[in-house]
């Protein structure tokens, strides 16, 4: 079974499907693909970030065969605190964990992502870097640009998550089961010789536009 760097057993698979179903029930997500289709080609899903559950709901709203190839990029400090989180991150979501505290030149997150996805996996990233309050989408960090510069063949899919900040706002532990809406937009690519700031603004605009649709 290709694309499984993490746990392989039946149990893990079952747990994956169960968690995906659970997340969809909890978030009551209606999923929309606008000018876009689910595909197993290598992609980078980039989304606005308002809650710890964001990566989980995007991951769970993908069709199963796409989901198996898709790895969330997450903060190491949050996802390695405690055994359950660590198990979920490494074995279930097969996440790529980024150490926010020490980013070295040779161990840069972008290098790591490129190495980890090789030529089969897709990524879920949150280019804002941290969680916002859900009203405004923050400025995008430059990681997305460098990732595309190294791998211009990756399809970038903008994703907008609506209402998730109300389900689990910053600083809260217990989620409230409101309804979310996940919108996948049309793919975009880094254009030849496109300036960093222009590209980041264009990507941010693509996510913002999905909110209005």
């Amino acid at each position: 079974m290709r694309g499984y760097a993490g746990g392989r057993g039946m149990d893990t698979n079952l747990l994956r499907n169960f968690l995906a179903l659970f997340a969809r029930l909890l978030s009551g997500a209606s999923v929309r693909w606008i000018d876009s289709q689910p595909d197993t080609c290598q992609r980078v899903y980039f989304a606005n970030h308002t809650s710890h559950l964001d990566a989980l709901v995007i991951w769970s709203s993908l069709p199963q065969e796409v989901r198996m190839l898709t790895r969330p990029v997450a903060a190491k400090d949050y996802w390695t605190a405690g055994r359950i989180r660590r198990y979920l991150a490494y074995q279930v979501f097969n996440a790529i964990l980024i150490d926010r505290t020490e980013i070295k030149v040779h161990q840069s997150p972008v290098e790591m992502m490129i190495r980890e996805i090789a030529h089969e996996s897709s990524l879920i990233v949150f280019p804002e870097g941290g969680r916002g309050d859900g009203r405004e989408i923050g400025e995008f960090k430059s990681g997305l640009y460098y990732l595309c510069k190294k791998r211009p063949d990756l399809e970038l899919i903008p994703v907008h998550i609506d209402n998730m900040n109300r389900i689990l706002p910053r600083g809260e532990v217990l989620p409230v089961p409101l309804l979310t809406c996940i919108t996948f937009g049309p793919p975009l690519w880094l254009e030849a010789r496109e300036a960093k700031l222009d590209f980041l603004a264009r990507a941010r605009e693509a996510v913002k536009r999905l909110k209005e649709l």
Partner: peptide
């Protein structure tokens, strides 16, 4: 959940909800 989703609440209402 349909009702509350359509009703704008503030983050501080979270625990009450």
């Amino acid at each position: 959940r349909e009702f509350i989703t359509l009703t704008p609440t503030r983050p501080s209402d979270h625990r009450t909800l």
